[in-house]
Simulated assay, not measured.
Amino acid sequence: MQQLRGTGVALVTPFNKDLSVDYDGLTAVVEHCISGGVDYIVMLGTTAENVTLTSEEKQKVVSHIKNVVNKRKPLVLGVGGNNTQLIVDELKNLDTTDITAILSVSPAYNKPTQNGIYAHFASIAQASPLPVILYNVPSRTGSNMSPDTVLRLARDFDNVVGIKEAAGDMVQVLKLLRDRPDGFLVISGDDMLALPLVLAGGDGVISVIGQGVVEPFCGMIKDGLDGAFAKAYEAHFKLMPIIDFIFEEGNPAGIKSVLAVKNKCSDEVRLPLVKASAALEKKIRTYLEAL
């Protein structure tokens, strides 16, 4: 899974003013990412607002991204939810063409125990025709996947190949890095902690801001992986404000505002999300002009 080291981006789903999917905007964002140096692309992650997409829209979005990427970069597909059986059924019928791995978020709202989380992902691992990257994001799911649970899954299932870790807890990250099996990827799911994770021995990031300021962010991660610590932190400090801005009023409203300022797609989001405020858009625009 070395092709999934470095910078992956969790793509947004651009919308037109009438909130239909904007496929031209999607093309523009994908090309922006590829030309800027991303290492791989994540389709239908939580940043894609996939909970507001119909099944038909999801299929069309994936097909469109595959066609635009045209094998130039590895693709990861988000397949997750809080109904284990539905995910298993989806995986059994999954078209794996041009997909390198799946990314599966820990169940939201249900708040399972650690044994429940283990059993959930065990079912997914057994059903998946592709390698599985776990995704831990307690701020959204309401429950934390402990390092012990992650490592248990990594040891019990050969196709559980990594974790996108977004608990915002470097102690938890260090426990994973210390005890992980050989080849198991530890990937940041937190843009602000991506560089510290990499410098501690991690494998990169699945980023939100990485699709907005592509070259500087990808360059920072590459420098971190290459051991150019001073150069990487210089970039990190410059990027800290925009990382704060894009999450100030929620994701993906912030990153869509960035992409709108850069004329890649509109800033439209679907309810219950709302667009970034004019005040936030002004801060983002001012920052990008200075950058």
Rank of each mutant, 00 (worst) to 15 (best):
N93A: 15
A154I: 00
F184V: 01
S63G: 14
K73C: 05
I117W: 01
L273S: 06
G162L: 02
A253N: 01
N67L: 12
I133V: 13
A48M: 09
G189A: 11
L53W: 08
V198P: 00
A200V: 00
I209C: 08
E215L: 09
P129W: 10
R155F: 03
K256D: 02
A235V: 14
M1H: 14
G36N: 04
F247P: 03
L151G: 00
M43R: 09
G183V: 05
G8I: 12
F157H: 11
G250E: 05
K264W: 03
V79M: 14
G189D: 13
D244C: 10
G250R: 03
E215P: 00
R5E: 10
E289G: 11
K92Y: 03
P272C: 07
S63C: 10
M170G: 08
A194R: 11
L225N: 08
K111N: 11
L225D: 07
T113P: 00
N144V: 01
S277W: 05
Q59K: 14
I102K: 09
G8E: 12
E49W: 04
D22E: 08
R140K: 08
K282A: 15
I284F: 02
P252C: 03
V205F: 10
D169T: 05
T286L: 13
V88P: 01
G168Q: 08
A127P: 03
N159R: 07
G25R: 04
V69A: 12
D156V: 07
P147D: 02
V61S: 11
G210V: 10
L151E: 02
G210N: 11
G210P: 07
H120V: 03
C33A: 12
